[in-house]
């Protein structure tokens, strides 16, 4: 339990949380990690006191188990229960094992390839008009989230406005394999997360035009693109898994961002 608490604290206090959860979860994760760690320490200390006062002779094997917090209060319960609980409790070590041995990273091109065809196609509410207007007044190149871009691109009324300007998108490059149906297609991918990455959905823009060959899959980039309405599907086709097309004007490689996903809720 102490270990789980510490893992939660470690993940919660570092940016690794952004690999797994949406940022709003951070305070809750930190608090729960702290609660677990404190309670675990209190229980362990209490056990030490009990153990030093009356050495437990009947449960010799438990000494080998290290930090199993069940040792302490087993003395006033039937052994059966304590053992059943602690056996399930050992499973708690698995996340630690996974974190250290597997060291999982953010979802990337592999996950994207598997999700192609089930792209996010919800009825997300986004009105591109006012957004672009604000940038036109300020004279800046609009930076758009992929979710906003895709939504506007699929909307019959919004797509003309979107096609009228160049916009900046952030995501990672995903090249199709040489033996794919259409070889050398280049996608700009990013996942959108509702609650945690278990519900992540793929956002994808098909890039046309010149993309330097040295940009490999999973290289994060900021691209300036112009939406291509002729080649892009409307909402009905998006539901069949087709993604919008954009002509690349410039590409700038960047380091992987702190927040690798887009988020559905604020």
């Amino acid at each position: 339990m102490l270990a789980v608490g510490l893992l939660a604290l470690h993940v919660g206090l570092s940016d690794r949380i952004l690999t797994f959860l949406r940022p709003q979860m951070r305070p809750y994760l930190v608090i729960s990690g702290a609660v677990l760690a404190v309670v675990a320490v209190v229980v362990l200390l209490a056990e030490q006191r009990v153990a030093s006062r009356a050495p437990v002779t009947t449960r010799g094997t438990d000494a080998d188990h290290g930090g199993d917090e069940h040792r302490g209060h087993d003395h006033d319960h039937d052994h059966d229960r304590g053992h059943r609980a602690s056996r399930a409790g050992w499973m708690l070590l698995l996340p630690m094992f996974v974190a250290v041995v597997v060291a999982p990273g953010t979802l990337g091109a592999w996950a994207a390839d598997r999700q192609r065809g089930v792209m996010f196609a919800g009825t997300y509410d986004f009105d591109v008009g006012p957004f672009l207007q604000a940038h036109a007044i300020a004279g800046t190149v609009p930076e758009m989230r992929l979710i906003d871009f895709s939504t506007a691109a699929a909307d019959e009324a919004d797509r003309a406005q979107l096609a009228a300007v160049s916009v900046q998108l952030t995501g990672f490059i995903n090249r199709s394999d040489a033996d794919a149906e259409v070889p050398d297609e280049v996608m700009l991918d990013r996942f959108i997360v509702g609650c945690c990455v278990a519900d992540a959905a793929l956002l994808e823009v098909r890039l046309s035009g010149e993309i330097p060959m040295e940009l490999e899959s999973e290289q994060w980039v900021v691209v300036t693109v112009r939406f291509d309405p002729e080649a892009s599907p409307l909402a009905t086709d998006v539901r069949r898994g087709e993604s919008p097309v954009a002509r690349v004007e410039s590409v700038r490689p960047i380091d992987p961002p702190n927040e690798p996903y887009e988020y559905l809720y604020g």
């Binding site: 993940v11 690999t19 797994f20 959860l21 996340p95 996974v98 974190a99 597997v102 060291a103 999982p104 990273g105 953010t106 979802l107 592999w110 996950a111 945690c196 990455v197 278990a198």
Partner: peptide, 9 residues
């Protein structure tokens, strides 16, 4: 890696 990410998440 995908499995690990989803599991931990």
């Amino acid at each position: 890696e995908n499995w690990g990410t989803i599991h931990l998440a």
